[in-house]
Amino acid sequence: MNKDTLFALSLFPYLGFLWFLTRSGKAPRLALIGFYVLLLFVAITIPAGIYAKVTYGKALANVDWLHGSAEFFLTLSNILVVLGFRQATLERQQEK
């Protein structure tokens, strides 16, 4: 199995994770938004990779400006998840 197939197949468990997490209603809202932004990262990375290959004849990782632009959404996702859980932790500590 090549890496592209594995990448595509990994989307389904992640969508299941999001579905259950959303339905549970127990995830901090900001963290949940961060998990959804990760889908945005994937949606941007795929066309960016195709553009890099067609326009520059290189892999996305070798076109710095394009790779960095796509990776911004991964960074944003991570920040939102961390801030969401941090906020929930602080709220929980204040309740005690």
Rank of each mutant, 00 (worst) to 15 (best):
G25H: 09
K26S: 15
K26A: 11
K26I: 01
A27S: 07
A27N: 11
P28D: 06
R29S: 01
R29L: 00
R29E: 00
L30E: 10
A31P: 04
L32R: 05
I33W: 12
G34K: 01
F35L: 09
F35A: 03
F35Y: 06
F35I: 10
F35D: 02
Y36M: 08
Y36K: 12
V37P: 05
L39W: 02
L39F: 14
L40I: 11
L40P: 01
V42F: 06
A43K: 09
I44N: 04
I44Y: 07
T45E: 01
I46A: 05
I46T: 09
I46Q: 08
P47G: 04
P47V: 12
G49D: 12
G49T: 02
G49F: 14
I50Y: 13
I50C: 07
Y51V: 09
A52F: 02
K53M: 13
V54H: 04
V54K: 09
T55W: 14
T55I: 10
G57S: 03
K58Q: 15
K58E: 14
A59K: 08
A59G: 02
A59H: 06
A59P: 05
L60Q: 06
N62P: 11
N62F: 14
V63K: 00
D64E: 13
W65K: 08
W65G: 01
W65R: 07
H67R: 04
G68M: 07
G68F: 13
S69D: 07
A70I: 00
A70H: 01
F73E: 14
L74K: 15
L74W: 02
T75Q: 03
T75F: 07
T75L: 08
L76G: 15
L76H: 03
S77N: 11
N78T: 05
N78H: 06
N78L: 07
I79S: 15
I79M: 04
L80S: 13
L80W: 08
V81Q: 03
L83I: 09
